[in-house]
Computed example of a mutant assay.
Amino acid sequence: MSVLVYIEHAEGQIKKTSLEAISFAQALSAKTGEGDVVALALGTIEHSALAVAGTAGASKVLHVHDERLSAGVIQAHASAVAQAFAKVGAKTLVLAKSSLGDAVAARLAIKLNAGLVSNVVELPHTDGDYLVKRSIYTGKAFAETVLTTENKILAVKKNAIELKTDGENAPVEDLAVSLEESDFASKITSTDRATGDVLLPEADVVVSGGRGLKGPENWGMVEDMAKTLGAATGCSKPVSDIGWRPHHEHVGQTGVKVAPSLYIAIGISGAIQHLAGVNSSKCIVVINKDPEAPFFKAADYGIVGDAFEVVPKLTEAFKAEL
């Protein structure tokens, strides 16, 4: 018996969120005695890149090398994962919570007759009931869910689990699955990808700006700070609505929801819609000249001051330390 981890990859590398899911699965296996942790990758990616899964705790990686799976067709992914789940004799599937992961997990819950818990934030309690703690209400509260099914699916929230990378590279084996034409009945005709050195969904540090920056011509200082910190850039909804920044940088309830280790908000008042997209961040720093800005109530650290004076000084201080 093994714990199976469905991993995602992009630009030829395993996503950090999937490595976190592997570390979670390894800790779960150690706790419950469910056996080895087996990672599963679908689509085109080099075996050398997949071997890194071993550093996070996988004993081996199974690779379904079918180019059709690289497009991320949900039905096909669900079918492939279900077959791998049966072949390794797993009772638990772990994956990262993501737009693709959510859709695949929902279908797998039916295929595997499994109980599904999403937004998992810590290892389940297994003394008595199988009790899983998850984040709800955009991170404002927690719920405890009891799973009673034999098969279980756990979707792990980003940055909720400590990533460990002290293991050795894992062996990678090709896995053959049977996919029907019906698995590819849905077609992805085009994909518009966000651009930038660091993308918002995967970023460990995010620097965002709001209308307090007064115009797109002032975004250079945001980008300079982000580059210094190796961060992604974001913005508030009003900023993207008026065309100062592209829509893929919109952070908030109706935009990209982020959970970085550090979120820096510059000139953003902190409307509830924006907070809903960032309140899972481990540390929030707010820079605003209005001491009554609502964002300060959610901040771990706040700086009351003019962003045009504060941000350049902070950036220079970062450069001196990094």
Rank of each mutant, 00 (worst) to 15 (best):
V81H: 05
L131N: 10
A103D: 13
A141N: 13
K111S: 10
A84H: 03
E122W: 13
V117H: 02
T138H: 14
I136V: 15
V120A: 09
A90M: 07
G101F: 02
N113I: 05
K111G: 01
K97M: 10
V120E: 04
V120T: 07
K133C: 09
L123Q: 08
I74M: 09
Q83I: 01
F142K: 08
L95S: 05
P124H: 09
S99E: 11
A90H: 07
A109R: 07
L116E: 00
G139N: 02
S98M: 13
A106R: 09
L93Y: 03
V88G: 05
A80C: 01
Q75N: 13
L112Q: 00
S98W: 11
L131E: 13
H77S: 08
Q75L: 14
L108H: 07
A96M: 12
V88L: 01
Q75V: 14
K91M: 06
F85C: 00
A143E: 08
A109L: 06
A141H: 12
E122K: 15
L93I: 11
L95E: 03
N113E: 12
A82G: 01
L93R: 11
V88W: 01
N119Q: 13
K97L: 10
L95T: 04
V132R: 02
T92L: 10
A86N: 08
A105H: 05
V94D: 02
V73N: 11
P124T: 12
V117Y: 03
F85H: 00
T138D: 07
L108K: 02
T92C: 11
N113G: 10
